[in-house]
């Protein structure tokens, strides 16, 4: 049942309460839409493997969090062991967009000195009426905050769901290949697995590879 993996990425999904974090994760891993998903009440997770490039398997540890502020203290240690973040807001709730910047700052402060890479997701883009944030605003903010991308997503209509996870994973993978993400023994955000078959351009310093 266990698939061997070359890399393991920790990815955390953040954003205000009820912007649709759990629905997005559920759609991605289970392929179905469930409107009344209950809050994770702390932390929840799913595991999913992503295959790209010949012989590369990336195991994704996907952490789903409770949006209510007081749960932040419980979610923090999972943020620290992640390399990527899907930061979400609801395009029909302006205030959830306004809080994106402080969300990012808080995460960066917390995971320091480890890196964290973001994609920004404007959720519920299927809503024809009641939209309060324009696409151009999302694009601009993502660029300004140095994020990998901005995507407009609908879990309900299954728009850009797969793309969100792929964009983030691909982006992190490329940065890693360019040597821009150092691995540390005690950091589990990005781990190089034992079954790496290709020669990686980066010197292997992760826990499982330094035996040779």
């Amino acid at each position: 049942m266990q698939v061997p993996w070359n890399f393991r990425f920790g990815i955390v999904i953040l954003g205000d309460s009820s912007v649709g974090k759990s629905s997005l994760l559920h759609r991605y891993t289970e392929g179905t839409f469930d409107e009344s998903r209950q809050s994770p009440l702390g932390i929840d997770f799913k595991v999913s493997n992503m295959y790209f490039d010949p012989d590369v398997v990336i195991k994704l540890l996907l952490w789903d969090t409770a949006g209510q502020e007081r749960f932040r203290s419980i979610c923090k240690s999972y943020m620290r062991n992640s390399v990527g973040c899907i930061l979400m807001f609801d395009v029909s709730q302006r205030q959830t967009f306004d809080r994106v910047r402080s969300w990012q700052q808080e995460v960066l402060d917390y995971v320091k000195p480890n890196p964290m890479f973001f994609v920004l997701v404007g959720h519920k883009c299927d809503l024809a009426v009641g939209r309060q944030v324009r696409k151009s605003e999302g694009d601009a903010l993502a660029k300004k905050l140095n994020m990998l991308a901005y995507l407009e997503v609908s879990t309900k209509e299954n728009i850009n769901v797969k793309e969100t996870f792929e964009t983030l994973t691909r982006g992190i993978y490329n940065l890693f290949q360019q040597g821009k993400i150092p691995t540390r023994g005690d950091w589990q955000g990005l781990t190089v697995g034992a079954t790496v078959q290709k020669e990686s351009p980066v010197t292997k310093k992760s826990a499982c590879c330094n035996c040779g």
């Binding site: 209950q38 994770p40 009440l41 702390g42 932390i43 997770f45 419980i74």
Partner: peptide
């Protein structure tokens, strides 16, 4: 336990 038991405490198993 935080991976599975937090809802047990916060909802008294009701969730």
């Amino acid at each position: 336990p935080s991976l599975y038991a937090a809802p047990w405490f916060l909802t008294a198993f009701a969730s």
